[in-house]
């Protein structure tokens, strides 16, 4: 029993390590809408598998089915990870509340809210109803097609409920730090997904590429928060612009799709396994004669 529990945990961790590069490669080869879902599914299942295995082990230690050394470490790690989960959940909840509060009392026109502000910014604020918030400075910086692209992009975030995907990725990474690289991948995929939605609506990929680049460059003067490392590898915005300008055939997903499916199946099996282990451990504990 004891070795089984350790093996399940090791399998979940190994799976997380392998699933990250596989899902990243797959996400670069499928439509960004699908990519965002695959990435979130992988992150959530990997998090469930590792947390499940860890919980089964920790409960086994508590009920005395597994010796305290080295099993006790599992309890400590589990507590720390659940603490991280709580912090991220509270953080995100507060952030949403602050956004809603900032906009309270100001008029909304349909789903668009324009704020009189020279600095260029635009964002999608989730809620009921969700709204697209744009500064007048941003609207001035773009031409008619650019404005259409911007509105379509932000609206796609709301319609696709991209906030949920991003937050799901953050929560998964909180309990399973091995899938942390997927957070940036999910963010990139939802931006690409919104870009594609805008391109579909405007009917001109080049114009949308132009608008994305323009919006990023005029937003530059705004410099929110801390600056990113200078001279680093090409960041997400140029990659998005390139993807919109690129009209070549999409690379084949083939082998990566098969691998990702296998890994998802394996993760599901591990989650089930952890649930069964947990059940067995608690049953053993409640009937000491067994």
């Amino acid at each position: 029993m004891s070795t089984d529990l350790y093996l399940d945990l090791a399998a979940a961790l190994l799976l997380s390590l392998v699933a990250v590069p596989v899902s990243q490669r797959l996400s670069a080869r499928v439509h960004p809408r699908r990519a965002s879902r695959v990435l979130v599914a992988v992150a959530l299942l990997a998090a469930l598998a590792s947390t499940g295995a860890l919980t089964a082990l920790a409960v086994a230690v508590v009920v005395g089915a597994v010796p305290l050394v080295p099993g006790g470490a599992a309890c400590v790690v589990l507590v720390v990870l659940l603490g991280r989960l709580a912090v991220v959940a509270v953080d995100r909840g507060r952030a949403l509340a602050r956004c809603a509060k900032a906009l309270r009392g100001s008029a909304v026109h349909g789903d668009l809210q324009v704020l009189a502000e020279e600095r260029a910014f635009a964002c999608a604020v989730p809620g009921r109803p969700g709204r697209v918030v744009v500064s007048s400075g941003m609207l001035r910086a773009l031409d008619a097609t650019g404005r259409r692209a911007l509105l379509a992009h932000e609206r796609a975030h709301l319609v696709g409920r991209h906030h949920r995907l991003v937050i799901a990725g953050d929560l998964a990474a909180a309990v399973n730090p091995l899938v942390s690289p997927l957070r940036a991948a999910i963010r990139y995929a939802v931006e690409r997904s919104a870009d594609e939605a805008a391109a579909e609506q405007v009917g001109d990929r080049r114009a949308v590429a132009h608008a994305v680049a323009k919006a990023a460059l005029v937003g530059l003067g705004a410099s929110w928060g801390s600056p990113v490392a200078l001279g680093a590898a090409t960041g997400p915005v140029p990659r998005r612009v390139k993807a919109l300008l690129d009209t070549g055939p999409a690379p084949r997903a083939g082998i990566w799709a098969v691998l990702a499916l296998l890994l998802l199946g394996l993760a599901l099996a591990l989650v089930t396994d952890a649930a069964v282990d947990l059940h067995e451990v608690t049953v053993q504990a409640s009937s000491p004669l067994a």
Binding site: A95, H162, V166, R187, V190, E191, A216, A222, G231, A232
Partner: peptide, 21 residues
């Protein structure tokens, strides 16, 4: 201006850029 809040509202159309970007 808050990092966490900016992530929640997906304010990435206006994204941070490096000099290289």
């Amino acid at each position: 201006e808050s990092e966490v809040d900016r992530q929640v509202v997906l304010a990435r159309f206006v994204s941070e850029l490096s000099e290289h970007d």
